[in-house]
């Protein structure tokens, strides 16, 4: 099998499983799926889910049913940076629609799509617990809040730079 945790990821895996009593290792499934998604390119191919099932000694179906239930797991490939913009009530009344439209225009993609260069995915999501700092979006592990058009431009430029720096 090609997908495997490296040593560092394996240490992290073991520390996650250690948080639950003996025999209750299935409890680590959600955190371990986060680790797998972060480790294997931002999404969960079937191979990754099967790998996790093997590590936790549970049936693959137990992993599939969980992975399909929770909105943070991506079951299809995504761009290098995923813009998850909140569209729920409080953000909507604070102007999220304009921001969403602006991002669509700047990246020339619709919600759910990825830019041709594989750099950005736009995802519309429900309340992220940042309603007082709206409009907002989540990118990876951080929140970008109080969005304006200028800020969106700067954020896009920032991630483009980051991608160049990483290559």
């Amino acid at each position: 099998m090609s997908l495997q945790f490296n040593n560092e990821q394996m240490t992290e895996f073991k520390s996650l499983v250690a948080r639950y009593p003996e025999g209750k290792q299935k409890s680590a499934l959600l955190p371990v799926l986060h680790l797998a998604q972060d480790s294997f390119g931002g999404w969960l191919p079937t191979e990754a889910m099967d790998y996790v099932a093997g590590l936790l000694k549970i049936e693959p179906i137990e992993v599939y049913e969980v992975a399909t239930f929770y909105s943070m797991y991506n079951l299809k490939p995504v761009g290098k940076f995923v813009f998850e913009v909140c569209q729920t009530g409080p953000c909507m009344i604070s102007g999220s629609e304009n921001i969403i439209a602006y991002i669509q225009k700047q990246l020339a993609i619709q919600p759910g799509e990825t830019t041709k260069d594989g750099m950005f995915t736009l995802k519309l999501v429900e309340c992220l617990g940042a309603c007082g700092y709206a409009p907002m979006m989540q990118v990876g592990k951080i929140y970008r809040e109080h969005l304006t058009k200028e800020k969106v431009d700067a954020i896009i430029a920032e991630y483009r730079m980051q991608a160049i720096a990483q290559n």
Binding site: R19, S27, P31, F69, Y70
Partner: peptide, 9 residues
């Protein structure tokens, strides 16, 4: 112990 959910109200 901290346990992270995965997006489900």
């Amino acid at each position: 112990h901290v346990h992270r959910g995965a997006g489900a109200y």
